[in-house]
């Protein structure tokens, strides 16, 4: 009885195996087909930005194939990169992002260390609160914040509205909660033995943080830094609300408000500006993709 069963099992299993492998190759082909479709969908806007940025205004308004550049020119790039106004936007954005990243790290790393390792009264509540603050969108806060800073200017005489540095106070509300949250996750995953050993050796809490935690959690730190940078670089609503003079604008707002003059859209320059504005995050992403993705998934998987 049992030998029969084995004989029977032999061939059927073989056939099934072959059909499964054929299934797999077909599944693979379909996967590639749809992936190509989705890749086209994802990459159309950035590629179209590049195509348009290489065209002259005459070619853009001519009724030629918009998907191809017949007379490539770098004049749009030359014009924007020599325009003081555009460079001003770029520098404003760069300075704000770099300073905000520094502020964010100085606030969130010690706080994350304190919340992950050194319990104090209310620390668990605070950790949850940090995550909840991250969920409060900027679109809920911009009106009261605007009014607060306006009143602050009236009371103290220090005018912050329409100065680029007002954004240094506001951007951390977007970056600090999330960076603290993912750093708590990274710090909590460090084995307790490490810091216990350091403290037995006579290290202070500060030394434990700088000599042990920061080096060990460096990937998390890089992920948090990238997040803080991309968020402050891409922020659009707050600068639109808080700054209006052209010399105080950051890149996204500068491009949408100064390059679009009334109903005249100089698409070559707008696309060039948009591409240059998208370049820093894209370059960071190209080189540090794994950290970028780690930061992205950390929010939900580590919490």
């Amino acid at each position: 009885m049992s030998t029969v069963a084995i004989d029977k099992a032999g061939p059927t299993r073989k056939i099934k195996y072959r059909s499964m492998s054929r299934d797999r190759t077909w599944a693979l082909r379909w996967s590639y087909f749809f992936l190509v479709l989705f890749a086209i969908f994802s990459l159309t806007p950035p590629i179209y930005m590049l195509i348009t940025s290489l065209k002259s205004s005459a070619e853009i308004s001519a009724a030629t194939n918009p998907w191809w550049v017949f007379h490539p020119t770098l004049s749009n790039y030359a014009e924007l990169l020599t325009s003081n106004q555009f460079l001003r936007f770029f520098w404003n954005s760069a300075w704000i992002s770099i300073i905000v990243v520094t502020i964010t790290m100085l606030i969130s790393v010690p706080a994350a260390f304190a919340l992950a390792r050194m319990k104090f009264w209310g620390s668990a509540t605070l950790a949850t609160g940090v995550f909840l603050t991250y969920l409060i969108p900027d679109t809920l806060l911009f009106i009261p914040l605007f009014k607060m800073f306006a009143l602050f200017g009236d009371w103290t005489g220090i005018q912050l509205i329409n100065r680029w540095y007002v954004l240094l106070f506001i951007y951390p509300t977007l970056t600090v909660p999330f960076c603290t949250w993912i750093m708590i996750g990274y710090f909590a995953s460090i084995p307790k033995e490490l810091d216990e050993a350091a403290i037995i050796d006579g290290a202070s809490w500060f030394q434990t943080l700088t000599r042990i935690f920061i080096p060990v959690a460096l990937p998390g730190l890089i992920a948090a830094t990238i997040f803080a940078f991309t968020v402050s670089w891409a922020q659009y609503l707050y600068p639109l609300v808080f700054t209006t003079s052209t010399d105080q604008l950051v890149l996204p707002v500068g491009i949408t408000t100064t390059l679009i003059k009334g109903d005249v859209f100089n698409w070559g320059q707008i696309m060039t500006g948009a591409l240059l504005g998208a370049a820093p995050p894209l370059i960071i992403y190209a080189f540090l993709m794994d950290y970028y993705i780690a930061g992205l998934t950390a929010g939900a998987t580590k919490g």
Binding site: A39, P46, Y48, M49, A234, I270, M271, L275, P281
Partner: peptide, 23 residues
């Protein structure tokens, strides 16, 4: 593939929306 498909999320939305506006 992952690298290519994540590009929309990386570009600042204000910038990519301009490209869509033009499209």
């Amino acid at each position: 593939w992952r690298g290519m498909l994540l590009v929309p999320w990386v570009i600042p939305p204000a910038m990519s929306t301009l490209a869509w506006l033009w499209l």
